[in-house]
Design a binder for these strands. Sequence first.
DNA 1: TTGACGCCCATAGAACCCCATGTTATCCCA
DNA 2: TGGGATAACATGGGGTTCTATGGGCGTCAA
Lengths: 175, 175
Amino acid sequence: MRRWKGVRRRKRLQHIMDRFLSSSVNRIDAKGRVSVPAPFRAVVQKRGYCELYALRGLDTPAMDVGGLDLLDRYEQRIAQEDPFQRTADDMSFFCHGDGTFLKLDQDGRIVMTDFIREHTGITQEAAFVGRGQFFQIWEPGRLAEHGAKVRERLLKLRQAATGASARPSTGGDAP
Amino acid sequence: MRRWKGVRRRKRLQHIMDRFLSSSVNRIDAKGRVSVPAPFRAVVQKRGYCELYALRGLDTPAMDVGGLDLLDRYEQRIAQEDPFQRTADDMSFFCHGDGTFLKLDQDGRIVMTDFIREHTGITQEAAFVGRGQFFQIWEPGRLAEHGAKVRERLLKLRQAATGASARPSTGGDAP
DNA sequence: TTGACGCCCATAGAACCCCATGTTATCCCA
DNA sequence: TGGGATAACATGGGGTTCTATGGGCGTCAA
């Protein structure tokens, strides 16, 4: 891929291009580079991000990636705290110390630095997961693991709700 | 690195270079020198700091490094303490008496003095941690330890806030 | 002297730019 | 409607620049 071609096509698809959706796994090459999925790049471009801000997940071995507004939001949040209390310090330590900028090269790739690998466990492949306003980068195996847990939690939640409202079936098969 | 090359490149990236962000570990050589990470040097240059001021962290085994505005920040912090208590005086002594200037050599390195080593426990490697308006220097092991504690506190904070309403989001899952 | 510190140089590896290729998805026209 | 032309994509690699890091040599002061 070269130099953001395909704008014409994307124009037509804009209505579905303003959120990060779906997921895919890409290979990391010998130089440590990996392509950001084209649909994600389209969102990035549409939102006008020239740089990406990536943050180590607080309780997951994943990177949360978004635009600079993501960082702005954190900083605004910190500004609400008493700057000399520990909480403000903790928050800054987290969003500044555990955050980094990702630069997209001309081919739409980013480099998997040690900073990212250490936290995610990524080695050869990277899974990109759309999360609406942002997206995540996972080590594929850990993503699967995490996905299973999430499903389980949701299932339990639904079962609890179903039982409470005495409704036998919202339908296991029904979408 | 020699003589602040790469200015041309940095020009293009300036818009994202106004904060100290991310973290990395560098080796200390036989002469006690260690490279300040290039992105940090770019910020230093952009902010026009001709000299760096390093203070011992008040409650961490780390050095806080920044421009003179960092000193203002410390003084505000101290001003919050009751001047009749020992604390304020101790703090003042601590940061004024124990602060030091760091000189960047032509290659962008600083010297890890005993002054720094004593407070941080640094021996062979130094971890640089961006904190937005300033950055910190840690002994890598202690940094990891401290990072774990911070994450734990933030996680608790988030869990406390979750369910209440739209959360301020210190969280990994919902920026 | 000796050791701390300034200045300079050298180099391996990382990061970045540009181009190439195989594969798949899409489009257009017969 | 089928099949070839076309576009887009993920991936690979070459070459250049930048960075971290090691070391040499003078100066200045204890």
